[in-house]
Amino acid sequence: MGGALDPTVATGRNLVRSALSDLEPGSRIVVAVSGGADSLALAAVTAFVADREAYALSAVIVDHQLQDGSARVAARAVEQLTDLGISSEVVTVDVGTAGGPEASARRARYEALARTGADAILLGHTLDDQAETVLLGLGRGSGPRSIAGMSPIDGVLRRPFLSLRRAATEQICRAYDLTWWADPHNADVAYRRSRLRNEVMPLLEEVLGGGVAEALARTADQVRADNACLDDIAATVDSPLRVDTLRDLAPALRSRVLRLGALEAGADGSALTATHLAELDRLVTSWHGQRRIELPGGVACVREGDSLSYVRTPVGG
């Protein structure tokens, strides 16, 4: 890349540098690459930052085998990553069906990435992805945790581009002379997110006069901050399994205390819904002798007298 530095490239580099600022030289960084514009752009600017900060950088291309030619897409991504000076590995996964094709693919992808043991795994989600996630959460009525969207940092997962529009990643690719793959699923009306992207978002932008994606992303940031505050308070509640303690809490705080207790007991947080929490709440506020509330992850919550407890659910029980 010659000539004057493209300002979009400079922005991308600064976002990655900020996202990794807590890591020491030599830290292992993995970029998840699909071959699309978002992840290729992320890889390109991360290569620059990793070189300057002495990070150990590599990339993983997850081949979900969901489309004809996926191996060719992965091979082309490897070629372009090599040109960027990034060593890479293609990991082939078998995608199940639990929770739908998108959720199954995401789960398989994250499991493959987790096996790298990296200090940080960078994902190419953009502001547009965040806006779509918030809309999906609103449509499901999943509560503030869903509306909060994706976090910039979630354990080892980091999303430096959450403030960057999708068009900017394409500009970064052009600046690096990278050619990206356009996933046909992104235009397939069989997928709800695709319809949001291609039909709903343009209509909202037209009706509301623009700035909708940015507004939704700001909303996610605000709700996430509120959630974090309430979660911190919930973690300080004494005797969180006592019914009298729970009953005296404000509903917004009580739901978080109940959720924290369920997670600590081994419930699957990715499948724990507002419906589950409402049932747990009824054990506290409207108990009529319910035996137990089954939760995802093979856990059940039981009320005995004035106390809640969690038990493992027997297979088939």
Rank of each mutant, 00 (worst) to 15 (best):
I153C: 14
R174F: 12
F161Y: 02
R159E: 15
S146V: 06
P184V: 00
L162N: 03
L157D: 15
C173D: 10
H185C: 11
R158P: 10
T169H: 02
R174A: 06
P184R: 01
R159Q: 15
R174L: 08
T169L: 06
P144C: 08
P144Q: 05
R158F: 02
A168W: 00
S142Q: 08
D183C: 07
G141M: 04
Y176S: 00
E170G: 08
P152F: 00
F161N: 00
G141E: 09
V156E: 15
S146C: 09
C173F: 06
W180K: 01
N186M: 13
I153H: 14
D183S: 07
I153R: 13
R140P: 11
E170A: 08
D154V: 03
I153E: 14
A175K: 01
R140H: 12
T169D: 00
R140V: 12
R158H: 15
D183P: 02
A182K: 07
D177T: 08
L164A: 10
F161T: 00
R165H: 07
D177C: 10
A167K: 06
R159H: 15
R158G: 10
W181K: 01
C173K: 01
A167M: 07
G143V: 00
Q171M: 08
S146Q: 12
I172C: 00
E170M: 06
S163R: 04
W181M: 04
Y176Q: 09
F161A: 03
A167S: 11
F161L: 05
Q171I: 08
S142D: 10
R140K: 13
W181C: 04
H185Q: 11
R174I: 03
I153V: 14
D154H: 11
D183H: 10
W180M: 01
V156A: 08
W180Y: 13
S146L: 11
P160Q: 03
Q171A: 10
R165D: 03
G141V: 05
R159W: 07
L157G: 05
I172F: 06
S142M: 01
S142A: 13
I172M: 04
I147Q: 12
A148P: 14
C173I: 04
A168E: 06
R158W: 15
L164P: 08
S142I: 06
P144W: 10
R145W: 10
V156M: 14
R140E: 13
I172P: 07
Q171S: 09
N186L: 14
S146P: 04
